[in-house]
């Protein structure tokens, strides 16, 4: 973890699904476990950027944002190590 990342908020957004609802959660990056931070880093490397991409109908997609970095992760590739973060997601308008 770099010093600049330590005090940052990790923002998570779930979009898509049949309902198309938008759910969000945010976390203090420094409070994530080492395994979780490692999985987040892997997401940034494997699924970088936040431009909308073509996907599979009605599957969820997960956007991660940390400072200037972002990742857009298809549901099928969401890491097991980050499964617990999904329980914090709550509906949000728009």
């Amino acid at each position: 973890m770099t010093e600049s990342q330590g005090g940052k908020q990790l923002r998570l957004e779930r979009s898509g699904g049949f309902a198309g609802l938008l759910l969000r959660a945010s976390f203090q990056y420094s409070q994530l476990s080492e395994a979780e931070r490692g999985a987040v880093e892997q997401c940034f490397q494997r699924w970088p950027g936040s431009d909308p991409a073509a996907g599979q109908p009605d599957r969820f997609s997960y956007r991660l944002e940390l400072a200037e970095r972002s990742a857009l992760v298809p549901e099928a590739h969401w890491p097991e190590a980050l499964k617990a973060l999904l329980t914090a997601l709550r509906p949000t308008a728009g």
Partner: peptide, 24 residues
């Protein structure tokens, strides 16, 4: 409550979420 689907082009939503707002 919170449904913001448009019914005409004047409300068209440009967004990166949800594959570019497909459900909106």
């Amino acid at each position: 409550e919170g449904d913001n689907q448009p019914g005409s082009m004047s409300g068209y939503v440009s967004t990166a979420s949800d594959n570019g707002g497909v459900h909106l």
